[in-house]
Nucleic acid binder design. Sequence first.
DNA 1: GTCTATAATCAGATAGAC
DNA 2: GTCTATCTGATTATAGAC
Lengths: 175, 175
Amino acid sequence: MRLFAKGGYAAVSMRQIAAEVGMQAGALYLYTPDKQTLLYDLMREHMEDLLAQWAQARIDGAPLQQLEAFTRFHINYHLERPDQVFIAYMELRNLNEENFKRIEALRRDYERELEEILRAGNMKNDFTIADARLSTMAIIAMLTGMTTWYREDGRLSRERIERIYWNMVRRSVGA
Amino acid sequence: MRLFAKGGYAAVSMRQIAAEVGMQAGALYLYTPDKQTLLYDLMREHMEDLLAQWAQARIDGAPLQQLEAFTRFHINYHLERPDQVFIAYMELRNLNEENFKRIEALRRDYERELEEILRAGNMKNDFTIADARLSTMAIIAMLTGMTTWYREDGRLSRERIERIYWNMVRRSVGA
DNA sequence: GTCTATAATCAGATAGAC
DNA sequence: GTCTATCTGATTATAGAC
């Protein structure tokens, strides 16, 4: 994960990966049939963990409360795993067609969680949004973007950043 | 640009680039000292063009009008150049330290344009934002994210998408 | 300005010893 | 389960012909 995030899939050799885990290159093939499958497995495990963790974190309640839960979950999950997040977004192009479709399906499943919260809130007039799919993509992009600049020792505490972003999300849906 | 965007810097060979422009690999070295400089030049030209185009597009007026101008400019500029945008964000890790600093400085210049609009609007109480820098990063991430899913022949027209996003931006700053 | 040829190195993956 | 050695082919960059 660390090597792929730092240099990109194509730039990392099986020899480098082997050195990182204290082996010779040949021994890696006891654990993966090839480099492509290794990337796919890392991405799949990340997406499956994301979905599983959200299934644990989600709450029942009013759409506004669900939206807040999703926002805070998404921020914290992503800020704690910057390498995985970077790979999950940037290395899609290095998956073969079949693997790409599988990862995209998992991503869709996750996006749908937010989309359904937005639809429910719109139906009850808790939110005022023109298009739930667009708001979903906008909110996820806004939140995920934090991983590109967030630093543990930055100017603002994570709690404060989280509150500010939640405010922006809330206002963006007209709540 | 197209090749780097599709496969990533490391995955693209000088032979592929040469074939794309109808040459042999050796002839490329008449135009660039090495592959790294070629990437840097592409990124620098993109950032300089972005800044130049915004200098043309920017307007005087109330902060809300300036924010709308920035939002619409950013959307249109980025949707028309998905390959450049992708490279400008994803290939930063493949620049050497010196080149990375130069590109980051140009990006900062661009971000500062939005940040100053937000600060001005906040001072006049046209906006209600807790932190101009955070709002800047949030808005840019939200808008730039459109390039990952936008298709010319998609469900919604560009004009409609633009209007919906502008609404979300406007509301996110409390205007 | 472009080509061909090549140097020097490195890639992913496999075979076989232990 | 891991190592060493190796196959095959690709890589960046350069040299020198034209």
